[in-house]
């Protein structure tokens, strides 16, 4: 089926199989592979995107359900080539190792800081509890979010 989506502020069209997830459509049909395919069942957050401004797992959204809605992916966070503060902080804090969880965490952290300008350490932990990371043990991810919060 043919669907039309708003991704990072621009209209895109794709021909998808009806049972396809938004994640698969973004990655394979629409040219946005930044959202990652780690578990495809909402347990890891690697595919996190904003759907009408709400943080969701794109693996659990049917591509057809996103039609007519605004999708923001990790590719849409940087502003005209200038990294989002969260992105800068992830690099500076050493919060990236293999990086497969990073796009989802960056989107989730940006979402947190949009809603909560001064998050406590507990707020950060709870807000990121839907994002699994296997490399870092999370310590430097928390550092990055604190760093970004201070910079924003």
């Amino acid at each position: 089926m043919r669907i039309e989506l708003q991704i990072n502020g621009e209209a895109h069209e794709a021909d998808v199989w009806e049972g396809e997830s938004l994640l698969f459509a973004l990655r394979e049909q629409l040219g946005f592979p930044g959202s990652k395919n780690a578990c495809e069942q909402g347990e890891c957050g690697s595919c996190s995107v904003l759907l009408d401004g709400t943080l969701v797992c794109s693996c659990l959204v049917l591509a057809a359900q996103a039609e007519g809605h605004e999708v923001v992916t990790v590719e849409g966070l940087a502003d005209d080539g200038r990294l989002h503060k969260v992105q800068e902080a992830f690099v500076a804090a050493g919060a990236v190792q293999c990086g497969f969880c990073t796009p989802g965490l960056v989107v989730a952290a940006a979402d947190l800081l949009k809603r909560n300008v001064y998050p406590s350490d507990d707020d950060i932990r709870e807000a990121l509890s839907g994002n699994l990371c296997r490399c870092t043990g999370y310590a430097k991810i928390f550092d990055a979010v604190r760093m970004a919060a201070a910079a924003l």
């Binding site: 946005f32 990294l83 992105q87 690099v91 990236v96």
Partner: peptide
């Protein structure tokens, strides 16, 4: 900082998948 840090935070880094 990691040499691949920026492409990994922007989603540009090309993983095998």
């Amino acid at each position: 900082p990691r040499i691949d840090g920026v492409p990994k935070v922007t989603g540009e880094f090309a993983y095998s998948s």
